[in-house]
Amino acid sequence: MVSLVALLLGALLWVPGWALRCYGDSGQPVDWFVIYKLPAQSGPGNEARKGLRYRYLDGSSGGWRDGAGPINSSEGAVGRSLQPLYRANASQLAFLLYNDQPPKPVWAPDTSSNGHAKGILLLDQEGGFWLIHSVPRFPPLPSSGAYTWPHNAQTYGQTLICVSFPLTEFTKIGRQLAYIFPFVFDHKLDGIFAQKFPGLKDVARGQHIRQEPWNSSVTLISQAGIKFQSFAKAGKFGDDLYAGWLAEALGADLQVQFWPNSQGTLPSNCSGPFKVLNVNQTSFPGPAGPTFHSTEDHSKWCVAPREQWACIGDMNRNHGEEHRGGGTLCAQLPAIWKAFQPLVKTFNPCMDNPRAKKPGE
């Protein structure tokens, strides 16, 4: 009887550590997942019209699947993963929330000197996750008491990647964030967390890299032992993340999806050893599609046509962001690459000809 009680107590004590992994659409903890929130009007039904449909991907999903419900549901992968933020008994958690477009009612000064960066760190003494996304005004403040999806993020496409990491990796993540210089709109890094992660505490206080080199790449190992590569640049790097560094670092041509509606958008670049081509149109496979133009898509990702690299982040290609911090998280993981590589329907070539090319042309 005593041994049974001990086992039950042990299981209960283990729950917080598991709760802070990424949670998938199935309701079970996963090592990583990717969400592609589809643009509004990208299919039939009320959820499509409201811009609440999404496609879901993880290591066992076998490719893109329809989301478990609307993106604003607490039963989906994003809602489940963020539930610990909104629980009253979250005293043993640490978190850091950053967004250059923070949620209301946060008062934000001019964030243009901060990184163009959006993300969430959530951890306890067992481990946690890093969720990188493209969603403005997200997530809602923990003090709001509930997970919601911002109304202003419904119209356009958005991407989110969540990766579960052991506690030791958050020291390296903190260093990457020091390059990015994110606008931290809320955080909780008390006691043991402040002692273990002084770098994260410094980031929360607004400290950042002040000397060369102005960029940093580190390998991060997930809880399941999967290798991810984090790329982070400071504003003083002074160049485009993709054409100025990432393509050569990966040794691959890149097709980049980003928000093209901002001022000073950079054209496709073929001046270096590797091409960086702006995605013009995205299309999900299958008769239901959907297909949509990059002007409808606020997501930020890139894929190598051949070398199996895929990256998901929070940076655009424009003149302004050459002088802002930011980054992306990459993996040479077949499950992610096979999901993203077919999405590129057309891209803008490096020529005066305005006709968008199809992959392979």
Rank of each mutant, 00 (worst) to 15 (best):
P359S: 02
F95Q: 00
I209W: 12
T291K: 11
P102V: 01
H298A: 02
V5W: 13
S3R: 11
D190A: 04
Q211S: 14
D58I: 02
W32A: 01
R175N: 14
S271M: 12
L254A: 00
A68E: 11
R205L: 05
S61Q: 04
C330S: 07
N152G: 09
S134E: 07
Q263H: 12
K236Q: 12
C330R: 07
F95H: 14
R49P: 00
R317M: 06
K227E: 14
L177A: 00
K172R: 15
A194I: 00
F347Y: 15
L9W: 11
R317P: 09
S113A: 12
K345G: 02
V135P: 05
G235N: 06
N99V: 11
W107L: 11
G67Q: 04
V78Q: 08
I173S: 00
K275S: 11
F231T: 09
A339S: 04
L8W: 13
T159I: 05
F33D: 00
G199I: 03
S271D: 12
A40N: 09
F138S: 01
N152F: 08
E212S: 13
G326N: 05
Q281D: 02
V256T: 03
K358W: 09
P39Q: 04
C330M: 07
G244A: 08
T295R: 13
L333T: 14
E322N: 13
G199T: 06
L38D: 00
G51N: 05
P39S: 01
F170C: 03
W245M: 08
W107N: 14
M1A: 12
S164K: 10
L93H: 07
I336E: 01
Q223S: 15
N46P: 08
Q154A: 10
L343D: 00
R21H: 13
Y242L: 06
Q281T: 14
V303H: 01
L52W: 03
S144P: 14
G24E: 05
Q92C: 10
S222R: 09
L160K: 04
P273L: 12
P334I: 12
A288E: 13
P305F: 01
N278M: 05
E169C: 06
S268D: 03
M315D: 04
W130K: 02
H323M: 10
G325V: 07
L13W: 13
D314V: 13
R210M: 06
E296C: 10
Q211K: 15
L9F: 15
N318T: 07
Q308G: 02
K201L: 10
G51P: 05
H151S: 10
P109V: 02
H116K: 11
Q176P: 12
R355H: 15
R355L: 15
S91T: 15
L250P: 07
L85D: 00
G326Q: 05
P39G: 04
W107E: 11
N72R: 12
W259M: 04
R80S: 07
L189W: 09
I192V: 13
L250H: 03
K118F: 08
F237T: 03
N261H: 09
A11M: 10
L96V: 06
Q92G: 14
K50G: 11
P349Q: 09
C311A: 02
Q263K: 12
N318S: 06
F237K: 06
P102E: 03
P39V: 04
P260R: 15
I120P: 01
A117N: 04
S74V: 07
L200F: 05
G10T: 12
Q341T: 10
A40I: 05
Q341H: 14
F165S: 04
